[in-house]
């Protein structure tokens, strides 16, 4: 079905934090650019294994790569920015955990093999960066293109389904799916159309998590049509 959905899952508990390193553990030539583009020049930036990015080492379907980010081993996380160095739209999602644990699972599109990273800002203003390489052959591009070609999403646009699971270690996990084409603007003739903002709150209206998606137009990349990193899925918060 050509509908992108949004699913997110909360983070798992983690072990103790590990000391930060200063050279890019993923050894990516794009790291310098990423840092300059997304993180404030004056900020303290450290690589920190307490920020876990979990994704398959090999993604079979580049249109639907599952990624989980978990920064719950860090104290006082204010916001988390997720990006993929080699994607035409590098920025994937930004979230503020608010009343939830700083953990989020979602699906992205990858144009080519790339590091996928999460940078978490803690209350002291420093950024903690974790990540993992995801390899992809780009095989996902041969699948029928999604989204706008399907009449179904127009009828169901914005439809939300969700369910809450209790977590063994306490707290809850929310999984959420939103019917939305999540078009990147990179496919020829299809304008960008994606979820810009998603706010989760509990029944009393207390904010749990604020989530933002991104889009940036670039010249169409030859080869694969919906070229970009997009949250085909989004979020959730674990209320803890």
């Amino acid at each position: 079905m050509n509908i992108h959905h949004v699913i997110a899952a909360a983070a798992l508990a983690l072990g103790p934090g590990i000391a930060a390193a200063q050279t890019d553990p993923l050894d990516s030539p794009r790291w310098g650019d990423m840092k300059k583009e997304f993180l404030p020049a004056a900020a303290r930036v450290v690589f920190d294994e307490r920020v876990r990015v979990i994704a398959p080492l090999t993604a079979e379907n580049a249109l639907n790569v599952p990624v989980s980010v978990d920064a719950s081993a860090l104290p006082d996380v204010k916001e988390v920015l997720v990006f993929a160095d080699f994607n035409p739209i590098a920025r994937i999602v930004r979230f503020e955990p608010g009343g939830a644990q700083p953990g989020l699972g979602f699906r992205i599109k990858l144009q080519q093999s790339s590091p996928v990273r999460a940078a978490a800002r803690t209350g002291d203003g420093s950024w903690h960066v974790g990540g993992t390489w995801v390899n992809t052959t780009g095989g996902g591009c041969t699948l029928p293109s999604t989204g706008s070609a399907s009449p179904e999403w127009q009828k169901r646009l914005g439809e939300v389904s969700s369910r809450v699971w209790p977590k063994k270690e306490g707290g809850e996990r929310l999984r959420l799916r939103v019917i939305h084409p999540e078009d990147t603007g990179l496919a020829a003739g299809i304008p960008a159309f994606y979820i810009q903002q998603l706010d989760l709150a509990d029944a009393a209206g207390t904010p749990l998590m604020h989530i933002e998606g991104f889009e940036k137009k670039l010249p169409t990349t030859p080869g694969c049509s919906p070229a970009a990193a997009r949250i085909s899925a989004s979020p959730t918060a674990a209320t803890s």
Binding site: I7, A8, A9, L12, I54, A55, P56, P66, V67, S68, G105, R107, R163, W165, R173, R175
Partner: peptide, 10 residues
């Protein structure tokens, strides 16, 4: 059980 796809993969 509400597992995320990354957890199902593991």
């Amino acid at each position: 059980e509400g597992l995320d796809m990354t957890e199902a993969l593991a």
